[in-house]
Simulated assay, not measured.
Amino acid sequence: MTPGHDRRRRGGPMTTAKADYPGRLARCRTLLDERGLDAVLVTDRHDVRYLSGFRGEDATLVVGADTALIVTDSRFYEQVREEVADYELVEHRGTDLLADSVNAAAESLGDGFTLGYQAGGMTHADFRGLRRAHGGRLRDVRRHVTHLRMVKEPVEIQALAAAAALVDLALGVVVAEGLVGRTETEVAWRLLEEYHARGAEGESFDAIVAAGDHGAQGHAIPGPRRIKPGDLVVIDTGARVGGYCSDITRTFAAGRVSKAHRKLYDIVLEAQLAGVAAVRHGAHGRDHVDAAARGVIKVAGYGAQFGHGTGHGVGLEVHEAPFLGSLRGDRLEAGMVCTVEP
């Protein structure tokens, strides 16, 4: 433990803003006319949480022009009553949540309604069951409901900032304890301890700790390798605060490093700074941000080794829109939160 370190200290600012659930519901309803729908069935658990505030699982939302239903089973009735204000609870008592959700929609909307659904997170078996239960017109809303989450509200930005600050502090503590002689797995577990000590709900994803040539693996799995003097150690990690994720990648030097390592580090740093400088309202994730970062690495002669995207959005999911890659990119708007990690 470093001098003056207080394990009770939390990782970021207190969240004071409130989520605008009525506004989110209203924005979801605008999709009905845009997509030619009478209602949309929301099954993605992150979208369910975003639209309603419900933090549990095994729940769906049915959103119509004058309908707002949340359908779940008895394990979550009381939780819904505590967390959800803008949706009517429909008690799911059968064995098929999707069928019960369609039946609840039919009771409210009548027969023959056009229902939007989220095919991207649904198995083929689920789709067949949904089609049998509905018997009417189904339209895939693709990512349109999920994309409502792209521009963040102040309460979301506060939670994201708190999650990032928590990881920043935890990394400082763990690295200050020394890296040489510890295994990758030990460092990963130590980070998790710090996250819990500081009040995080958990990790955003399994931490990546990779020393030496292991760091060349983009998503390396921490193992028993011991960190040696002179190693570069890549740590890619994040924590969840208030449901929101952070995602921080840093490269640490375990003692003195070679000139070759320093040169590579400086190239990546220059690429990152170029990408960050390109992030602005109206910029395109592919044509501006990724191109700026990728251009630096290509000029340095390492373009062939840069196979992944430059960045992505972060929120309730650690990887979400907007995307900033050479193959997939989105137009950026004020209020979006994204990583830049070439």
Rank of each mutant, 00 (worst) to 15 (best):
A163P: 05
D6H: 11
I267V: 15
T123E: 07
K228P: 00
L25N: 02
T251G: 12
R49P: 00
A133R: 10
R256L: 10
A300Q: 10
G295W: 01
E194Y: 04
G223A: 12
R294V: 02
V63P: 08
K152E: 11
V141P: 02
R262C: 01
D20C: 00
V151G: 02
R286F: 00
G135Q: 07
E193A: 10
L115A: 13
R9Y: 04
E91T: 07
Q158D: 08
V90Y: 01
Y302C: 05
A300Y: 08
V337F: 06
E177A: 14
Y302F: 14
L89M: 12
G230D: 07
G135A: 11
L25C: 04
V80W: 09
Q158K: 03
Y117R: 00
D44N: 15
K18Y: 03
R139N: 02
D86R: 03
E34K: 15
T183F: 12
D6T: 08
G285R: 04
Y195H: 05
H147T: 12
E317A: 15
I297V: 15
A164N: 13
G202I: 05
R143D: 15
G12S: 09
H281C: 05
E107A: 08
L130Y: 01
Y77G: 01
A254D: 03
P222C: 04
R198S: 08
G23E: 09
E153A: 11
T95Q: 12
C338I: 13
A170P: 01
R142P: 00
H288N: 15
G136V: 09
E78Q: 13
L130Q: 02
R256M: 04
T16Q: 05
K228L: 11
V71K: 06
E177R: 13
D111S: 14
R24H: 05
V257L: 08
T183E: 07
A334F: 08
E57S: 14
